[in-house]
């Protein structure tokens, strides 16, 4: 047994991982979610704003992180739609525009009463990373004269009076890296005291904790944060709770649970092999 484990072909581990994530995904396993204080803060920051508030939603990620971030992007969109906010979509990643499209398509399908230009609109992708944030925080028209489809901002009812993003009541950022939440905190929320919440990938989350709670009101960390946020929305909005497509993150937590348990088992087995090997004098 020891020899087998010591020289274990990594393809066995790949197979185990495949099985560990396949069963929960195919069986649509989901587990109860306990809402953490951090996620509660994000939910409360959005929930406490009055109807009609202006919210800038920046989707700074691409298909590589979509598996981790799309559920929270959809949850943010649904929450804002339920609150009847004015939603301004933007992305700073070249491949982020289709992510905005996913949210606008969601709005068209689930909230047919909301109209483009009156309830939501998209600035599309803007090149320049943090430079874009630095400019639009004081003078949006200089860098973004039109929406994603080339319509002048003065011809869109909800952007007529918008001169800069200091007029926004909240910034929501879904971030997979740079430019992302760190840049929004550095160039928008900190110098101009703008209320900001974020959702980010698991690897980014520890780096963003230092900005909480002053510069960043709250943070959804990876799929776990998204699942808790879906739970918080479900508890307040029964209509959303009844929608299977609004429970994406919770369903992915099933696969995460089994995969994490497998990782713990692999680490324990790996260490047993290591200590047995050391005792025998052939540890690497």
């Amino acid at each position: 047994m020891y020899e087998f484990l010591k020289n274990l072909d990594r393809r066995w581990i790949f197979l185990l991982m495949l099985l560990a994530v396949s069963f929960p995904i195919l069986g649509r396993w989901s587990f109860p979610e306990k809402i953490s204080p951090m996620v509660h803060d994000v939910f409360a920051a959005i929930e406490e704003l009055p109807e009609g508030s202006k919210v800038l939603i920046s989707f700074d990620y691409d298909p590589g992180s979509q598996g981790e971030l799309q559920p929270m992007a959809s949850a943010f969109t649904r929450h804002c739609a339920e609150k009847k906010f004015k939603m301004y979509f933007l992305c700073l990643w070249p491949l982020g525009e289709p992510m905005i499209e996913k949210s606008t398509n969601l709005l068209k399908k689930e909230y047919p009463d909301l109209k483009y230009g009156e309830d939501f609109m998209s600035f599309g992708f803007k090149a320049g990373g943090e430079g874009v944030i630095k400019v639009i925080v004081t003078n949006m028209r200089e860098l973004i004269p039109t929406d994603q489809f080339g319509t002048g901002l003065d011809n869109i009812p909800m952007t007529k009076g918008i001169q800069n993003i200091q007029q926004m009541d909240l910034i929501i950022n879904v971030s997979a890296g740079d430019p992302g939440t760190k840049q929004w905190v550095q160039f928008a929320s900190t110098p101009y005291d703008l209320l900001t919440v974020s959702g980010c990938t698991g690897v980014q989350a520890p780096l963003l904790y230092p900005y909480i709670p002053k510069q960043l009101r709250g943070l959804l960390g990876a799929i776990k944060g998204a699942a808790e946020y879906e739970q918080a929305i479900d508890e307040h909005y029964p209509k959303i709770a009844a929608m299977p497509e609004a429970q994406e993150a919770k369903q992915r937590m099933g696969a995460q649970l089994v995969a994490h348990i497998l990782m713990v088992i692999l680490i324990i087995v790996g260490n047993i092999v290591y200590f047995v090997g050391r005792k025998r004098g052939d540890a690497r």
Partner: peptide, 8 residues
């Protein structure tokens, strides 16, 4: 898959 292998 690679993280699982590396963990072991």
């Amino acid at each position: 898959f690679y993280v699982a292998s590396a963990a072991f």
